[in-house]
Design a protein around this nucleic acid. Structure first.
Lengths: 342, 342
DNA sequence: TTGTACGCGTTATCAC
DNA sequence: GTGATAACGCGTACAA
């Protein structure tokens, strides 16, 4: 008696089952599913019928093994809870939800070593594309990206020398624009308050410094930074520190909106008038900036759009169309509000 | 001249290469890597040497195909940008970063149908475990979870009838506790302000209602809800609506902290005294609640810990140890602050 | 403890 | 346009 070929798997229908039922070869079923235009109308219908009847679903693992390509986008961000990256990730997901691609998300915790590790985990999977935050990879990480054998999109920055493609904006220009706005509004003793101080924060600080020096206003005592992760509460503390160091402070450009909100709350608590005594500018323009009282001036950035664009570029590259421009600068916008309306 | 067996793949070393170099069978290499204790000391060392020399890395796709199991945790959340779920996801990632498991994250957009679709995408991958937010799956989704053939952990809620395992807390009790606190603080015309109104918000509302009815204070005009996604700005608008409907309002229990912050800002703008004229309670206790001015009373929940616990339970189940308690209630805590200190 | 033979479900290759 | 055959790289089953 012949054992009915005991399936190790869960007994789901395979491509062979569909082929048998449709009276065609397995490869034709495979083609009908992936490149329908290369299979005749007739067979396509028969195959589709068999697929529906059997409830056949291709095995992604088998497909990945055979084709040496997984339908996976590897995505690396420094933080999952930072709203800024969450928005980028959301843009990526929304752009991918239609197609066959899955997303594999990695959290680097702002660590270059962790990024290397994750890249080493992603590589053997043979992802269809890689999207990574930032341009400050370690040499090792950069080499891993260059040899990944798939399109790579770096996001959230701009610059001259991407691994492959790049979409974002200039943090340096953003920092400069924010600072220049404060100067034009009449503030003079303008502080910089920054937490985390990752590479993007560093560039914003550089923009701040450039603007202050150009105006002859730079003073190292006006700069307050910490590697500690950003939070509203930390913003309050740093503002107190800044005031202690520079009692004549009359404005602050904050690393990000959480810090800015903390500064605002501390001003409330200390009965410091905003924008009269202190002007405040944030960065990213989270929703709450417009609703705060007073509303807070901020640099609006297009995180969601960056996510979408990164996918569009990767998809184009996968389709063989290398985009005309490998570096896309989506810019930013200064949103003037009450916190600097002196 | 013999072509050196052109590899379709990228020519990376395979397990066979390692086996040859170490002078053992391929299966022994496989075992040495997955269950070292079942291979003799000697061979293990030889194999490890060969692995290092060749730079061998197992192909996860081939492994998944052969074993009918992918080292993947499927995770389904309704939102990527909502800090609450971002924290759960972070807990999951942090708990998984040591081991061999990758994470595949899906965004259901608060949609049962989207959840079904994602479950259908995850299924064929044969994930090692599934973690999903909530207990309100559609019948179809629930069936998919039950037949997934892997441990399933539902998170962020508690209840009597999990698909498999469940870790979270009671939103109904949370809503009741928040409301009772306002009542005890002396507020009487206490409103409920809720956005999105997903199942968890509905249960918080039910808790609010229970408390208000128990105190003989319930009045339908005090309830203001909308299906619109939550935001600080929306909180301001809803509060204005609530005041228009119930001018004698003297307190609000907010769906979440974003709404609560919006209410606070609107009070500032309208020169309404908090907590004297209006008491405010939020939900989740985000960092900014403690720094707001005045600081805002909230229900602290343990999102990160829920993420970690869910992984721990799944891992235990994978290891064959069905945990003694399939339902874990991590509770919550009322954090009293200035916004209700009348 | 180690190895042999084979299967996992699909796609690439090349012939028809 | 369609199909037979041979990988893809690894793990399972079973034997030794």
């Amino acid at each position: 008696m012949i054992k009915p070929r005991s399936r190790r798997g869960g007994g789901r229908p395979t491509i062979a089952d569909v082929a048998r039922k449709a009276g065609v070869g397995a490869i034709t079923v495979s083609r009908a599913l992936r490149e329908p235009e290369r299979v005749s109308e007739d067979l396509r219908r028969q195959i589709q019928a068999a697929v529906n009847e059997l409830g056949y679903v291709p095995d992604p693992n088998a497909r990945a093994l055979a084709s040496a390509r997984a339908d996976v986008f590897g995505v690396l961000v420094p933080s999952l809870t930072n709203n800024v990256f969450a928005e980028v990730v959301r843009g990526i997901y929304d752009s991918l939800s239609d197609g066959p691609f899955r997303v594999q998300l990695g959290n680097t915790h702002y660590s270059g070593l962790e990024e290397e590790r994750l890249l080493q985990v992603f590589g053997p999977q043979r992802p269809a594309a890689l999207i990574v935050a930032g341009i400050d990879q370690t040499p090792t990480a950069r080499k891993l990206l260059e040899t990944a054998g798939c399109p790579v999109v770096q996001v959230m920055e701009t610059g001259p020398d991407p691994v492959d493609m790049l979409v974002g904006f200039s943090h340096l220009d953003g920092g400069r624009t924010a600072t220049e706005h404060l100067i034009e509004a009449g503030y003079r003793r303008i502080g910089f308050i920054g937490a985390r101080m990752d590479p993007r924060s560093q560039r914003r600080l550089a923009g701040y410094r450039a603007a202050m020096e150009a105006a002859g206003l730079f003073d190292a005592r006006l700069v307050t930074t910490t590697p500690v992760p950003s939070s509203v509460t930390l913003g309050r503390e740093l503002f107190r520190d800044a005031l202690a160091k520079a009692p004549t402070l009359d404005g602050v450009f904050c690393n990000n909106d959480d810090i800015a909100l903390g500064v605002l709350f501390e001003c409330h608590r200390a009965a410091i008038s905003v924008p009269r005594t202190i002007g405040i500018v944030g960065f990213n323009d989270l929703d709450m900036m417009q609703s705060a009282f007073p509303s807070i001036t901020s640099i609006r950035t297009y995180r969601y759009e960056i996510g979408r664009r990164s996918v569009a570029m990767a998809l184009a590259a996968i389709a063989g169309k290398r985009p005309e421009q490998r570096v896309v600068d989506l810019g930013f916008e200064l949103i003037r509000r009450e916190s600097t309306a002196r």
